[in-house]
Simulated scan of single mutants.
Amino acid sequence: MLTPLDIQNKEFKKAFRGYSEDEVDEFLDQIMIDYEKLYKENAELKEKIEKTQDQMDKYKNIEETLKNTLIVAQSSAEEVRSNATKKSELIIEEAEQRAKEILQNSRLEVEKVKQEYEDVKKQMQIFKTRYKTLLQSQLDAVLGETENLE
């Protein structure tokens, strides 16, 4: 590829009836100036493309990192949800077991109270019977003495 310096240093052979040397030099100078502008612009654009490519690579790395982070976050969220579900099931199971124990203890307590009630009822019946018997015997004794007195 030609550089602006190559154009500036280019010399042509002189020929009889050739082009006007001043016009050729002037034209080459103009070409050199334009070519130099294009050459610099091309170099700047290549540099911009390289910088842009570097930025794009960085963004691709960031994108990949974000994707991986999102995957890890989703996995963690799923694990947390799963653990929460298991824990809630365990809590419910423990609560149900505790409720069964409370019901069983309550039934036993009710049975115990019923048994105590029946025992007290029987004792009351026995007491009534004995008291009635005692009163009857006392009444019989009082009536027996009154008959003897008559």
Results as ranks from 00 to 15, higher is better:
residue 121 K to C: 04
residue 8 Q to T: 02
residue 39 Y to I: 00
residue 79 E to Y: 04
residue 12 F to Y: 15
residue 99 A to L: 08
residue 49 I to D: 15
residue 115 Q to F: 08
residue 89 E to A: 09
residue 21 E to W: 01
residue 146 T to C: 07
residue 129 T to I: 10
residue 33 I to E: 15
residue 64 E to Y: 06
residue 50 E to V: 03
residue 33 I to S: 14
residue 29 D to I: 04
residue 95 A to M: 14
residue 24 V to Y: 00
residue 96 E to T: 07
residue 117 Y to R: 13
residue 21 E to K: 15
residue 83 N to I: 12
residue 67 K to I: 09
residue 128 K to R: 10
residue 50 E to A: 12
residue 96 E to W: 03
residue 30 Q to A: 11
residue 139 L to V: 12
residue 133 T to H: 13
residue 106 S to Q: 13
residue 138 Q to M: 10
residue 46 K to A: 08
residue 118 E to Y: 11
residue 26 E to H: 10
residue 44 E to R: 14
residue 71 I to C: 02
residue 135 L to V: 06
residue 136 Q to H: 07
residue 149 L to M: 13
residue 25 D to G: 09
residue 61 N to E: 07
residue 6 D to S: 01
residue 7 I to T: 00
residue 72 V to S: 06
residue 124 M to G: 02
residue 23 E to I: 07
residue 92 I to C: 10
residue 144 G to W: 02
residue 43 A to F: 01
residue 27 F to A: 15
residue 48 K to F: 02
residue 12 F to E: 02
residue 43 A to G: 00
residue 132 K to F: 11
residue 135 L to M: 10
residue 64 E to C: 02
residue 81 R to Y: 03
residue 98 R to I: 11
residue 13 K to R: 14
residue 108 L to R: 07
residue 2 L to V: 01
residue 137 S to H: 12
residue 85 T to G: 05
residue 52 T to K: 13
residue 56 M to Q: 14
residue 74 Q to S: 04
